[in-house]
Design a binder for these strands. Structure first.
Length: 647
RNA sequence: GCUGGUGUAGCACAGUCGGUAGUGCAGCUGAUUCGUAAUCAGCAGGUCGUGUGUUCGAGUCACAUCACCAGCUCCA
């Protein structure tokens, strides 16, 4: 048989392990953790019995990281079983940045217990325990897990397909049902940390028992672990929920309620300028502006399907179950309102495409544990829009929506951090969705084709059960500083609601046709976008979006008037400028402006006043030297006009 | 909503064994008029998240509740 290691090939007659094969060619080292054999990740002890393509993996490979951290999860589980033998095991995968293991235990794992578990894990690592794989027939596997009193494992085995290989890993006294693969020995887990313990539902279902999830991370060396933990601490310093409050973008007040932030002057200004910019851009792209009510009677939501599918998510004014009285609900989406614009009169094919845009405030009654700073709130404002289309316009208009989103996200600098998710329905959960399987298949296949064409095959992931109740979505996703993913922009194809609302147009042949609808945002929800901007720029928003762009710092009282003159000139150019005329030393004022992350400070003293100059100081690069006031203003205007993200 | 953690002045924090609340920054007042990241002095600011209980006495102990943080579930 031929064992192909890429550049090197080993020819052998008898079966041998990956490790033995790699060793013969001197390819294996201490850093080698696992191998990809004919496309499947295997451990180094895997026996090669025929021709094989083998790629060895270290911790630098995704596969290596996973195997390493998954083994760390088993070390954790072994430690838990040693200290709390009555604990029931469930699952423990490697994840981005680490691993977790879910346990069912009467004892709740407090931070002190996590410490004790870490100590026990250190012992297990020092004991250098081998991990040995073995397979059992189904009934024996169930018997073993029943004997060990592991009901969750029994359940997992019972759910496996009849022909599945059922594998276990033994490390010393500890045995776990696991597909593997794993490291050779526990000794390699040199550096690890248990980071937190939280709740998590068994199988991710709210109806199931809540288990205890212990999160941890692991590295081959202490230095790498330390660097990782420090990087996380650094990222948290950018957390908009802290920084946004410190820099006075927003605040919250107990008596107003959860998920209802107060936008302070800085936050309100930035959101306002983003909204104006988006509205103008949409106007340029042929959108018509609408302004629709923030609430409606339940009748409207009955037509749209919100009453059936979204009642829990709405703020209801009145008793939803009392049919004898009027009942209103604050709007959670703009769709059914904006459709009324189309429905206002009989429509012709000549009216299409009809592009409707609105800066729309929405209300969603999120569960109390869901809120997060400005990213997840109960009232938010979104660059909402609906395009009503003939079928032949769908492709072109979808492309237009994507281009608009790309333009908007690029201008604020977030596009490079975004990735795409094609959000589909779950055919197994038809109760959550409107429409028939045929309708969903049609909408999803159309969308799939458009995504392949405009994004490229493989440039998006697929999210099952992530669709809206009325149709599939392209979600443009981004992660916050905690690594948590959220949707920034969404473009959705809807072939159902138009029918429900009786929307029709008359085509060339004088027949009535139901239009397609695209639901889309161009910059998403302003609160969330602002949050991600604060995190991306660590509070130092690029000049064109900064709530305060220039601060003038007169050195003494004598320059106050000159400072105000310059401020007024800048204001005439539409710039956001203030004067810090406090009786303080220049270093003090600079420090204050620097900490508030003002893009440019203009230092003005006797010399500047005499010569008609200013001495700008950039928050990024410091003192720029004296220049004529007009020159700086021209420079600043250019930075703003071009939306330069470097300033 | 669920699990765990945290709530002391605008912010960052101290407060021992239960004995009645402190520091720095910010704020205000005064002095200082100063050239690229903190001038000096004084003043003011707190029902210790809220409520109930235990106690002679609660920031400190117990219970409840609210808010915040992380995770789960759910979503833009």
């Amino acid at each position: 048989m031929k064992i192909n290691f890429g550049e090197r090939v080993l020819e052998k007659d008898a079966p041998l392990s990956v490790f033995e094969a790699a060793s013969e060619l001197e390819l294996a080292s201490r850093a080698t953790l696992c191998a990809v054999v004919n496309g499947e990740v295997k451990e180094m002890t895997y026996i090669l019995e025929g021709d094989a393509d083998v790629r060895l993996c270290t911790f630098d490979d995704e596969e290596g990281k996973k195997v390493f951290r998954h083994t760390a999860a088993h070390v954790l589980a072994q430690a838990v079983k040693r200290l709390y033998p009555e604990t029931k095991l469930t699952i423990g995968p490697a994840i981005d940045g680490g691993f977790y293991y879910d346990f069912d235990s009467e004892t709740s794992f407090t931070p002190d217990i996590l410490k004790a578990l870490e100590d026990e894990m250190k012992k297990i690592v020092r004991e250098n325990i081998k991990l040995e794989r073995f397979e059992l027939p189904r009934d024996e596997a169930i018997a073993l897990m029943t004997e060990k009193n592991e009901p969750y494992k029994v359940q997992l085995i019972e759910e496996l397909p009849a022909d599945a290989v059922i594998s276990f890993y033994r490390q010393g006294e500890f045995v776990d049902l696991c597909a593997g693969p794993h490291l050779f020995s526990t000794a390699a887990i040199k550096a690890f940390k248990l980071t937190q313990c939280t709740g998590a539902y068994w199988k991710g279902d709210q109806k199931n028992k809540m288990l205890q999830r212990v999160y941890g991370t692991a590295f081959p060396s202490k230095d790498e672990l330390k660097a990782h933990l420090e990087a996380i601490e650094e990222a948290k310093k950018r957390d908009h929920n802290k920084l946004g409050r410190d820099l006075e973008y927003f605040t919250t007040v107990d008596s107003i309620g959860q998920g209802l932030p107060i936008m302070l002057p800085k936050g309100a200004r930035t959101i306002q300028l983003l909204q104006r910019w988006v509205e103008d851009e949409e106007q340029r792209r042929g959108y018509m502006l609408t302004k629709t009510p923030l609430m409606a009677k339940r009748d409207l939501y009955r037509i749209s399907g919100h009453w059936d599918h979204y009642l829990d998510g709405m703020f209801i004014l009145g008793d939803p179950y009392d049919e004898t009285k009027e009942c209103f609900a604050l709007r959670p989406m703009t769709c059914p309102f904006q459709y009324q614009v189309f429905l206002n009169k009989k429509r012709s094919y000549r009216d299409l495409p009809m592009r409707l845009g609105e800066t729309s405030t929405l209300f969603r009654n999120e569960d109390s544990g869901e809120m997060h700073g400005l990213i997840r709130v109960r009232q938010f404002t979104i660059s909402e829009g609906h395009l009503i289309l003939r079928p032949d316009q769908l492709s072109e208009e979808f492309k237009g929506c994507l281009e608009l989103a790309k333009y908007c996200l690029s201008a604020v600098g977030l596009w490079e951090d975004c990735y795409f998710r094609f959000s589909q329905w779950d055919p197994a959960r038809t109760d959550k969705y409107e429409g028939t399987p045929e309708q969903w298949n049609e909408a999803q296949s159309i969308m799939g084709e458009l995504l392949d064409e405009y994004l490229g095959k493989g440039n998006y992931s697929i999210g099952i059960d992530e669709a809206a109740f009325y149709g599939p979505k392209l979600d443009i996703q981004m992660k916050n500083v905690h690594g948590k993913e959220d949707t920034l922009v969404t473009i959705q194809i809807d072939m159902l609601l138009a029918k429900k609302f009786g929307m029709e147009y008359t085509d060339q042949n004088d027949t009535r046709v139901t239009p397609y609808i695209i639901h889309r945002t161009s910059l998403g929800c302003y609160e969330r976008t602002l949050a991600l901007l604060i995190e991306k720029y660590a509070g130092a928003l690029p000049m064109w979006m900064a709530p305060e762009q220039i601060r003038i710092l007169p050195i003494g009282d004598e320059q106050a008037e000159y400072a105000n003159d310059i401020a007024n000139k800048a204001r005439d150019l539409g710039m956001r400028v203030t004067v810090d005329a406090r009786n303080e030393k220049i270093g003090y004022k600079i420090r204050a402006a620097q900490l508030e992350k003002i893009p440019y400070m203009l230092v003005i003293g006797e010399k500047e006043m005499a010569e008609g100059t200013v001495s700008p100081r950039s928050r990024k690069s410091g003192d720029m030297g004296a220049m004529p006031a007009s020159e700086f203003l021209a420079f600043a205007a250019e930075q703003i006009r071009t939306k330069n993200l470097e300033n």
